[in-house]
Every structure is written in C-alpha cells, then in structure tokens.
Design a protein around this nucleic acid. Sequence first.
DNA 1: GGCTTTTTTTCGAGCCTCGAAAAAATACTG
DNA 2: CAGTATTTTTTCGAGGCTCGAAAAAAAGCC
Lengths: 413, 413
Amino acid sequence: MSVGIRHDDLRRRNRAMVLSAVRRAGQPSRTEIAATTGLSHSTISAISSDLIQEGILAESKPSETASLKRGRPQVGLALNPEAAAVVTVVLSLNFLSVAVIDYAGQVIAEEQRRLDTLTMPRDELIGECIAIVRRRLEDPDLDVGSVARIAMGIQGITDSHARAMLWSPITPLTDIPFADILEKEFGIPATMENDCNMMAVALQWRDPDRYRDNFIAILLSHGIGMGLVLKGNLFTGTHSSGGEFGHMIHRPGGALCRCGRRGCVEAYAGNYAIWRSAMKMSEDAEPVDVGDADMRALAAKAREKDGPEREAYRRAGEALGFGLGSLFALIDPAPVAMVGVSAAAFDLIEPALREAIAQTAGGQHSQSISFDTEPNELPLIREGCAMRALTFVDQEIFAPGVQARTGAGKNVA
Amino acid sequence: MSVGIRHDDLRRRNRAMVLSAVRRAGQPSRTEIAATTGLSHSTISAISSDLIQEGILAESKPSETASLKRGRPQVGLALNPEAAAVVTVVLSLNFLSVAVIDYAGQVIAEEQRRLDTLTMPRDELIGECIAIVRRRLEDPDLDVGSVARIAMGIQGITDSHARAMLWSPITPLTDIPFADILEKEFGIPATMENDCNMMAVALQWRDPDRYRDNFIAILLSHGIGMGLVLKGNLFTGTHSSGGEFGHMIHRPGGALCRCGRRGCVEAYAGNYAIWRSAMKMSEDAEPVDVGDADMRALAAKAREKDGPEREAYRRAGEALGFGLGSLFALIDPAPVAMVGVSAAAFDLIEPALREAIAQTAGGQHSQSISFDTEPNELPLIREGCAMRALTFVDQEIFAPGVQARTGAGKNVA
DNA sequence: GGCTTTTTTTCGAGCCTCGAAAAAATACTG
DNA sequence: CAGTATTTTTTCGAGGCTCGAAAAAAAGCC
C-alpha cells in the first residue's frame, strides 16, 4: 500500500524539514534547527551548507541580538528572498487580484481588477485570469524565470487535488480546471484552492499559538464556508475541498438556500438569509446579493433597538450554533475564527449561537470554545495562497534538490 | 514541529513496511513484497532474513500453487503464529468477552460472561475485566510471556489517545482509565478503543476492496455510533474518539435523546426511539432499553402492514438521511456499512433515508452512495481490536527490533 | 593575553539501500 | 535425460547519509 522509504528520500525529507524550520522560525541558528528537528548538529551543518551554496538560504548578520551571551555568537539562517517567487491569484465576487511574492514571503508586486463575474462567459473569465497573471509576469522589474508556483484561490468548491473549480457562487459556470489552464499557459505548476481552506492556512501562520493543530475558520459572508485544520493538517473531502459547513442541514425542509435546497445553515446565516429575515420576507424568497455596506447598516440598526433586524441575527446565531454543535459532535470542540463582513456583527450573533451550542452534545464544554473575529477575508485568502505556494516550493522544488546540482553538490568547499 | 528522520528510523520503518505487507497479503513472496513496497529485492531479502531469524516470519511451502510458472518457485512468507499473542476485551451492555489471538490472527482461546453492567459499582466492573483477562492469561496451555498487547473495546466515548473510557451508555460510571489499569495489572501495553472505530478497522481488513480509503461504519443499535475512515486513516476527534454521528442535531429542540439533550439523530433512529415512536409514545418519553428480539418483532410487524411501526422506521430513515447529508457535506459521499440489530431492518429504513439524503448537499450523487448491512456487531468489534493490537505489535514491538537482537543480527548465515 | 563558553565544522565509523552479478530452483525441449 | 531458458533469491561492493567526538571558530570575561 504505502511505499517504503528509499535511501535517497532521507536527505530529501530532512532538507524539507530544515526549510520548514527556517520558514517557521524566521532566523534560527543551526543549533536551534538541530533542536527543533531532532537531527544532529553535523547533519544540520551539512544540509544548511548545501542550501546556502544553492542560494536557497542565506546567513544573516544578527546585528543587535548578539553580545548578550558568552560563546561564539549564533548565525541566523534566513530564506533567500531571491531564491524563488510565487504568484497568488484570488478570484472572488466581481473581483480579481493577483500578487507576486518572493521566497521570503514579501509581496513584490500586485494588481487588482473589478469585473462582473456573475455574467461573464467562460472564455472571458479564464482570459481575464490569464491576462492579469501575464501582466505581472511580464513586468520588466521581475525575474520571471524564478516564479516557481501559482496558487489560485476561489470562493466555492474545488476538487480534493486542488486542480479545478467545481462550483462557485460567483459564477454560473462549473468545472473549470484552472490549475491545468494556468500550468499550460505559463509552464509553471499551479493549484486551485478553496478560499476557506486558504483562510485556515493563513491563520495557522499568522497566529500559531492560537491556531496550531485543531481549529476552524468560518466565513460569514454572502455564503457560509469553512476551513478546517485537524491534527495540524488541512481537512479536505474525499472528492472535493469538502467542509461545506454552510450546507449542513439545520432544519429539514426549512428555508430556501442559495444552493437550491432547503434548511441549510447558510439559508439562515448567510448575508442574504439575514437580510431576507430582517426584511420580513418569506423563507422561500429567492436569495439576493446584499452589499457589505447594507449589511453593516443592518447590523447597526440591530444594535440600536430590538426588532426584526436583531431577530434575524439571532436566528443566524441559532443556525450557526446548532451547526457547530453537530460539527463538534464529530470532531470535538476547537477554537473558531469568524471571518468576513458578518464577523463584524458577531456581537449580535454570539448570544444565540452560544445558547444553541449549549443544547448540543458538541457544546458540552461550551465555555472552552473560543471565538475570534476578522472582518476582512481577502487578505487572509491571499496570505494562505502565498504560504501554500511557498511551502510547496520548499518541499517539492527545493527538497529533492538533486537534479539541480549536477554532481558538484556538497564536495565543493 | 515534526521531527527529522534519523538514520536508524529507516530500517525500522522498512521493517514495519514488510510486516504490514505480509499481514495484508497473507503469504507473499519476497518479490511481491518488493513490488508493493517499492524497495529493492536486496533490501527485502536482508530484512526478511532478519525477521525469519528473529522468529517473526516463517517461510511456508506453497504446496499446490507451484508448478504453474517456469523459473525458481516463489517462497511464501507468513507471519509466525507463535511470534506473539494479543488479548482482546470487548465490554458491551451486560456482556463481557475476551479472546487470546496469535500473531497470525487466529483465535486460540476465548471466554464470555454475562454481567449487569448498568448497576455494577466501579470496583466490581473493573475487577470483572481484570479477572477474565487473568483467567485467560493463566491458562496453562498459553505461553503468557508472549502476550504483547491488550486491546479493549467499549461502546461509548473514549479519549483520543485510546487510554480511557470517558462515557458509556452501558454504565453510569465515567472516566475509567482502563488502558492504564490493565497495563498496571498485567505489565502489558494496553489500549481502550471505541467500539465503532473497531468496527471500521475490522471492515477495512475484511473487505479491503470495498472499504479501503474512505468509508463509514454506522452502528444501528440501542444508540447510534459511527466509525469513520478517511484517506485510509481512522478518524478521531481532537480530544475524544469523536465521530458522534448519533448526536448530530436532526431537529433543534426535537425528541428527547438518551444523552439528555433534544433533537439528536439517535433520538429518532436509536432502537429506543424507533420503539417509542412505534408505540405512539411521546417524544419526551424517557428512553427505555429494548431487547433485540423485540426489535426484530417490531421490524416484522412493520414489514407486514403499514402503520405506526412502519412510520417509526420511516422517521428513523429520515433522521439518518439528513444526518448523513450533513456528514457528506463535510467529507463528501463514501460507502456506508450499517451494523447492528437495526441494520437487519435496513429495508424499512432505506427508502426514507435515500429520500432525505437526496434533499441535502451531501446527497448530490446519491446513486453513488452504497449501503451494506451486517447485523452482528460484536464479532466485528473483536476483530477490529485484534487487528489494532496486532498492527501495534508489528509496528512498535517488532519494528524497532534493534534492542532484541544484540549485535548478532544480519551477519550470521 | 589567556581562559571560558558556545556555536559550527570536520572526520571517521557504522548503517542502510541499491544495482549488478551470481546462485538457486524449477520447467521446457529436443 | 542433459542442456537451456526462466524466474526468484542471495551476495557483494559502491555510494550516501547520519552520528558522535573532536577540533576549530568566535565571541565575552578576568
């Protein structure tokens, strides 16, 4: 079934380990790396010497941190920003943004564009994505040859191998193999990632103390999405990106959901559902797109006085609470990050949510369930795409490292 | 974070790989092992020669399979039954059973006992478990020294490290660290496993074609439990055994569940819920224990004519269907095995189940969702415990293998 | 300036896996 | 029935990798 470990895998994996340690720690010394990886100093010395020679890592003068301890000062190792670059493409409702990011994770170029995703024909949508990437790649300031990976993020369902968009609320089009399209167009390996998964990846890098092994990122926006990290790994479905929290069933046969079915969590907690409920429209009313400004105004009104607006948020909280309760029955409680425009209204949602979750098996330790909010999802998605692309480069491009150095590897110097 | 690969890990892992290949294939030749593991013939030859010398594997004469092909006949490698033994302990409602199993997986001794688990005090319950194991271990026919692992399975929630029973429907007692208790008593490493997880493990060994990487085992009995295998690995919660499918919320504020909460799937699909509904009792009625024979009679009645009995199964199917729909929204559809006494009534459950699941996002490809039934859960649980214990021996006891052979390892012969 | 302390590199030993070739064990062939 | 072809298994030397110990390097301390 799974495959044995060949001898050459050893170096490959340990190289990846070292790169991962450097990316995580920033500027660790060789001694620190030896400690975190459990490998011997000699091994770390050999591997890092290789990586420096190959231009992947660089020694950094620790200017002020020195002169505190006695012995030989530690030399920090850092990622060489010029070792490679990656491109992120984020496609969301009526909005396309692209960024070029160096190997150390710094944004070195970006471009954003409004477009009408809902009505665009297939060719045009694909064309826009290709064009915006091409413009960045043809930027004369940029060393095109060093771009080693493209990571595209989209709101909606992707396949479990991160190759294609299967379905998305931002367009009626389905099954667009963006990863293959971009690879073919630019000859650079690409992936097509789910937006909420990328939010989770970004949170793991942003705040590793809070979001390390088990946590949940929930997008509260027009739709309801989820990115799930369990035991340190991003959770995906067996066929698709999975984790469609918004389409768990809250009330069988209940309110009409954007997906055409009834009773989904999203049909009570999505922006359109909150709006529909606040406007005292029927639960069968066709979902409409509500702007962020309108949602903020709605939240303000709900805070002001009791009424249908406040009730709408209460019902959203209830749906989210019972949904989380069912989720927690499966995976046990974990910290939650609420992301998106309605996360800014979490004060209106939280009481009913906590009340609902307390009525579920998953809410047994409801006081230990923590919530954090982040209103702006786009930066998170881009950050997640960037980290995903960079760790791919670490592990798949720089970790084999054998085909690059033709023989003259470690015996020089 | 995760640790680098040391040089000695290599042999250890590849030994484990070989043992795993042999356990899976039965009597593979060295050539077959080389093919499945991807290791070279020389490596397999060296490792298997070690394992044979250590008495873990044995060559087996392939009596009739030979004389079909031309060249040198393949020599089958098999697990040496006497290399070790494991003990399984299965504790279920009013029933305790223990078995001793040899390294090749054959039962070599067993004992079963009825006891009143619901009223037993803590010391007595623990005492009975210890006593039954002791009786088997002190059997003069058995080589006690070779017992390398005890795996205990119980209906209920265990912790994610498989050390303790946290909660169980078979006893009002909570938080019994059975694994520690057995280890202390017998000086043999032990685990405390969740019953449904063991069902899933057993199915994976019984029918690897059908149940390989992604599948669901659902226990339809007094309560509703689930064992989940995703991407080839048993799924567990972050703190507990997790996968409490029966306590996902079907109808917020709905029928009274055995867990004291309302609207759980189990409160509609557990034996007591079906019974309660068929007897036209209130949804608030306290759950009662229903015997297997009564359930079979109820199913017979439901098959006979339309009426409250048939309606009760219909409602159970609806709850299971919406629950599966929510589960599939998270993990995508996968084959399902229905286990337990009510699995024998799956014909009564299936129509409503399929109808419900078709109304959910997870049921999008409802025709591709397959169901299989197995009325008897106890043999599955024991089998799962046995395989879990045996693979532990493969990987943790026989795979280091270094401390056992003092120097005189491979250079002999 | 010598001594202490800490980090990093060097060096030889010990394993492990691999590929190629040899050995072993059987069926086919004339 | 002896020789040949075929397939499996073992043997052997080469190449790599990691490790521990010792050496080297680079500071601060007195």
